[in-house]
């Protein structure tokens, strides 16, 4: 028997997830405009895989299938996976990654709400470790027409030089290894005004979507602000110390997955911290680690690893940052 309250806000998980999907569309639109429609193919593949994987696992676990698909959370995971991947990864990479995210990361830990790690980020890390080259072939903005993209996605032969330019982060990193100065590197073709050419617009799209989520109160300001601020601050500190060796904070904010991560990945409620202070620490930690990996680590983009590392710390962060309770003084007063 369910007791009071007898009235409920017309909110639902489905509605939350739908809002997230909606908020991703400006970014996706920019993606299509700047890079090409190939991403849509991968999105479709990923969505189908997610639904199938979800249904399959639910059946294996003997749980009702309909409500789980209806809550759209699998779709959100699938879309995020695709959006972190290069748009021209072969279809089977997407399928494997999404299946991994849904079946292993989400359901092995008990399904919706139980997974300690961000499924999309686990999938990304697994794939970049397993298929490093496929995962680092990014087409230059506007560089490939849809037919070529489709062919590549469907497993067409890859002529590396023709199809891929390095991403901005990649170029920066190889450039610095080659002992060029940042200024010189930034004048090369992959770079636009702020970040990677074309990719800046996509980042702007995500930013717009993120602001929508904020306005609709689906996410709170803590995580995006803490993440972006820490990323910028760390980058700024290094940049001020040595502008020749390190790129500016603006470049870091505008390139790679920073914006996508700030509003859609770091903010994943299930695997993130939940207390206000905890959220700030969590997101700041990601920002810091992500920058360190970008600047000194073995991978050009470090957000995924940073997220997983911070996921590990969530229980501790939450435990240590329990907010003050009404009427009690701050601190532990049981």
């Amino acid at each position: 028997m369910i007791q009071s309250p007898y009235i409920r806000k017309p909110a639902s998980v489905q509605r939350v997830m739908f809002t997230v999907l909606l908020a991703l569309t400006p970014g996706i639109a920019a993606y299509v405009w700047q890079v090409g429609a190939g991403i849509l193919v991968n999105l479709a593949i990923a969505s189908a895989t997610a639904v199938a994987a979800e249904a399959l696992v639910r059946r294996l676990r003997g749980r009702p299938i309909a409500p789980a698909i209806g809550d759209l959370s699998a779709l959100v995971t699938a879309w995020l996976v695709v959006l972190c991947f290069p748009p021209i990864v072969p279809w089977w990479v997407t399928v494997v990654a999404v299946t991994l995210a849904i079946a292993a990361v989400k359901h092995l830990y008990g399904g919706l709400g139980q997974n300690p790690f961000n499924p999309a980020m686990v999938a990304y890390c697994a794939m970049i470790v397993a298929f490093p080259s496929l995962m680092s072939q990014w087409p230059p903005a506007g560089g490939l027409d849809f037919a070529t993209q489709l062919d590549l996605i469907l497993g067409g032969a890859r002529n590396l030089d023709a199809i891929t330019g390095a991403t901005a982060l990649d170029a920066l990193r190889t450039g610095l290894r080659g002992a060029e100065s940042v200024d010189a590197i930034l004048r090369q073709p992959p770079f636009g005004t702020l970040g990677g050419r074309g990719w800046e617009w996509i980042a702007a799209g995500y930013l717009a979507g993120g602001l929508l989520l904020l306005a609709l109160r689906v996410i709170t300001w803590h995580m995006p602000v803490a993440f972006l601020a820490t990323l910028a601050a760390t980058a700024g500190a290094f940049w001020l110390a040595n502008p020749a060796q390190f790129a500016s904070p603006l470049f870091h904010l505008a390139s790679g997955g920073a914006m996508l991560a700030a509003f859609f990945i770091v903010t994943d409620p299930v695997s993130g911290a939940t207390t206000p202070l905890g959220k700030i620490i969590f997101a700041a930690g990601i920002g810091l680690i992500a920058y360190l990996i970008r600047a000194f680590g073995a991978f050009p983009e470090g957000i995924a690893f940073a997220v997983l590392l911070m996921n590990l710390c969530v229980p501790l962060i939450d435990m240590k940052t329990q907010p003050r309770v009404f009427g009690h003084r701050r601190g532990k007063s049981p």
């Binding site: 007898y6 409500p67 399904g111 709400g113 709170t220 409620p269 207390t275 009404f326």
Partner: peptide, 25 residues
């Protein structure tokens, strides 16, 4: 007063914490 829909697992969205007047989690 519609009957409540079947519950889903908690997604730790924190909505409840924001609504709680006793400032609990």
């Amino acid at each position: 007063f519609p009957r409540s829909k079947p519950p889903l697992p908690c997604i730790r969205c924190g909505e409840c914490a924001r609504a709680c007047p006793a400032e609990l989690q």
